[in-house]
Design a protein around this nucleic acid. Structure first.
Length: 273
DNA sequence: ACTTCGACCTGTTGGC
DNA sequence: TGCCAACAGGTCGAAG
């Protein structure tokens, strides 16, 4: 579920329901996520008001009076707003209850996600500290990617999925962006030209923007339990389409593995050069 | 400092 | 139908 567009959509979805709301209590049902949930979270958060909701990479930030709650959704996590009397299901690991009877519920079957507390308002938590540039800001430029790639011999796909370089580009959108930019995913990062990086920046941004646009509809009814993906399914041109025909040229799409993740591309449209 | 690889979990899918 | 391996949107830490 969660790459940048999904996280962005969730942030936009929950914001009106949690911003300026005061926390009454926190219920932790399963504390073993990627990191243990802070022990005293209930005491810590009770009485605090959520002042703002934002996103940094794939991290969701709930800015409270005395610090911020950092939420990562891992591979399978999601957040919903519902009434606090909704019974919890199997993977509903944590509830934030508000004084108005609403509840922000964290669900994550694989428990690869994380819930962390950062005292104060600075972005100095270890998990945020070394993050790269936000792709949808002016910080992402072809020059930046080019300069930072000079000593990198990994593939361009792994390079753009590196959180220290750019945040938010996961496996799906890495595949899609490279197709859009007509760049072979296996190209070594330090071999790309400035022109190629210019195309790549445009592609990453347009793919993410388009996905955010579609994502908006899926989670519109985010109170229901049917937070199914598939909304962006139509728009995917390569991801999940190995063995099918390229929508541009009809060539059979190829699948390879890079860093234990699957890569799908068109060997005709994305030739190495 | 870089790259690769295993680890963390559960659920679903596809082959036999 | 049942069993089992492989795989799934992410990230970290160890080892080379």
């Amino acid at each position: 579920m969660p790459e940048l567009p999904e996280v962005e959509t969730i942030v936009n979805g929950i914001k009106p329901h949690v911003k300026q709301k005061t926390i009454q209590a926190v219920i932790v049902r399963h504390k073993l996520l990627r990191y243990p949930v802070p022990k005293n979270l209930n005491q810590l958060l009770s009485g605090q008001t959520i002042q703002q909701v934002s996103r940094r990479g794939k991290y969701i930030l709930l800015h409270c009076d005395e610090g911020m709650l950092i939420i990562h959704l891992g591979m399978s996590g999601y957040l919903r707003c519902l009434k606090s009397n909704m019974p919890a299901a199997k993977h509903d690991h944590l509830d934030i209850l508000f004084t108005n009877g609403d509840c922000l519920r964290y669900t994550d079957p694989r428990r690869f996600g994380a819930i962390l507390w950062n005292k104060g308002d600075a972005f100095d938590h270890p998990c945020l500290k070394s993050l790269g540039v936000e792709p949808l800001t002016s910080a992402l430029t072809a020059e930046y990617l080019l300069e930072n790639s000079r000593n990198r011999r990994c593939s361009i796909k792994q390079y753009i999925m590196d959180n220290k370089v750019i945040v938010g580009v996961g496996n799906i959108y890495a595949n899609e962006s490279l197709f859009e930019a007509a760049i072979n995913p296996a190209t070594v990062a330090n071999k790309l030209t400035l022109l190629q990086y210019q195309n790549l920046v445009k592609s990453i941004q347009s793919v993410l923007r388009a996905a955010i646009k579609r994502g908006g509809t899926t989670f519109k009814d985010f109170q229901s339990s049917s937070g199914k993906p598939g909304y962006f399914q139509h728009s995917l041109k390569v991801y999940g389409r190995a063995g099918e025909k390229c929508l541009q040229c009809g060539t059979m799409l190829n699948e390879i593995r890079q860093g234990q993740r699957s890569t799908v591309y068109c060997r005709h449209c994305q030739q190495r050069r």
